[in-house]
Simulated assay, not measured.
Amino acid sequence: MDSTFPRTRKPQRGYNADQVDEFLQIARRAYDGSALPSDPPLNSERIRLTAFALQKGGYATADVDAAMERLEDAFAIEERQVAARLHGDEVWLAEARTTAQVISNRLARPEGHRFDRMSPLALGYRVRDVDKFAEKLTRYFRDGWPISIDDVRSVVFSTQRGGYRESQVDLVLDAVVDVMQAVR
């Protein structure tokens, strides 16, 4: 993966170029099996949770995000292959089915009660937006309704006072991505 991305114009903010370049060097070594002892362990989940500071004239966020998604996918495929060699495909798929069932149970809760709510004074994800997307995910798990990993990764929710707790919704979305990668 090339670590050179287009940059934003100076008044606009993009990702900190030094942080992105450093992370991609670590990722390249981890993927090639030549990680340094000082390198942090890296897997698809860590890649998904990585965030970069913003700076004026930094790397264009859309380009870096797309590269990070491809990198996450590559690591997830490698992780699945390793798990299949060690434990067999059935163990890997059974774990994915278990996770999918936990997600489905969460999504089956009544509208407005699928996730914990923030206090009436604090902002959270807009309940109506999350519930609408939850219905799409329910159709995916229950009926095989088509939805892509990119749809899950790129979903954006408005905010509202007393909305759903963002961290809880984000964890479920991360689990959905894990399941989708497992059954590819």
Rank of each mutant, 00 (worst) to 15 (best):
S34L: 08
L36T: 11
L36Y: 14
P37V: 12
S38D: 14
S38M: 08
S38C: 12
S38F: 08
D39Y: 12
P40E: 09
P40T: 08
P41Q: 05
P41A: 12
N43F: 14
N43S: 13
S44R: 05
E45S: 03
E45Q: 12
R48H: 12
R48C: 04
T50Y: 03
F52G: 02
F52A: 03
L54E: 03
K56F: 08
K56A: 07
K56L: 06
K56S: 07
G58L: 03
G58C: 08
G58S: 08
Y59K: 03
Y59Q: 05
A60W: 00
T61E: 14
A62K: 14
A62M: 12
A62T: 13
D63C: 10
D63L: 06
A66S: 15
A66L: 15
M68D: 01
M68H: 03
E69F: 15
E69N: 12
E69V: 11
L71V: 04
L71W: 00
E72Y: 05
A74Y: 03
F75H: 04
F75M: 07
E78C: 04
R80P: 00
Q81T: 14
Q81R: 15
V82H: 06
V82D: 00
A83Q: 14
A84D: 13
R85K: 15
L86C: 07
L86W: 02
H87P: 03
E90W: 05
V91Q: 11
W92D: 00
A94N: 14
E95T: 04
E95A: 06
A96T: 13
R97K: 12
R97W: 02
T99R: 05
A100F: 09
A100K: 04
V102F: 09
S104H: 07
N105F: 15
R106P: 02
A108Q: 10
A108L: 10
R109F: 07
R109A: 10
R109W: 02
P110N: 05
G112V: 07
H113Q: 14
R114I: 02
R117C: 01
R117H: 11
R117L: 11
M118A: 04
M118K: 06
S119M: 08
S119C: 06
L121A: 15
A122T: 06
A122P: 01
L123S: 07
L123R: 09
G124M: 01
Y125F: 10
Y125V: 10
V127T: 04
V127M: 13
R128E: 06
R128T: 00
D129K: 01
V130M: 02
D131C: 09
K132L: 10
K132S: 09
K132V: 04
F133V: 09
A134K: 03
E135A: 13
L137P: 04
R139D: 09
R139E: 05
Y140E: 00
F141G: 00
R142Y: 08
R142W: 07
D143Y: 03
D143G: 05
